[in-house]
């Protein structure tokens, strides 16, 4: 799993690339929280994500939930169909009230 962050004035985009499984650990969640401190709007770009599971999405889920509670705007874009399918089974977007 690799990440790239592009920061603009009020908005930041985190580009995710690779497979999100249990090897991701809390690293991704921490990154999202840090970026969230500096910006009002955070975009998670899933274009490069090729696999996702319940362990890999865990830290992302909880970090996103916290930022939403702080009033930040978060969107997830460029989700491939396969990955959207898995996210749906995981109840990810539904639990966060997001559209993906």
């Amino acid at each position: 799993m690799q990440y790239q962050v592009k920061e603009h004035e009020k908005q930041a985009t985190i580009y995710l690339e690779g497979e999100l499984d249990m090897t991701v650990g809390s690293e991704l969640g921490n990154l999202i929280r840090q970026v969230g401190e500096r910006h009002e709007t955070i975009i998670l770009d899933f274009d490069g994500v090729t696999f996702i599971d319940s362990s890999g999405i865990g830290s992302l889920f909880y970090a996103t939930k916290d930022l939403l509670a702080l009033g930040k705007a978060i969107s997830i874009t460029n989700v491939k169909e396969d990955i959207r399918d898995i996210l749906e089974v995981l109840g990810f977007a539904e639990a966060l009230g997001l559209e993906i």
């Binding site: 249990m22 809390s26 599971d53 319940s54 362990s55 999405i57 865990g58 830290s59 889920f61 909880y62 898995i86 089974v89 995981l90 109840g91 990810f92």
Partner: peptide
């Protein structure tokens, strides 16, 4: 463990 805990559901 700190995950979504949805393993069996999946």
């Amino acid at each position: 463990v700190d995950t979504l805990g949805a393993g069996f559901h999946v």
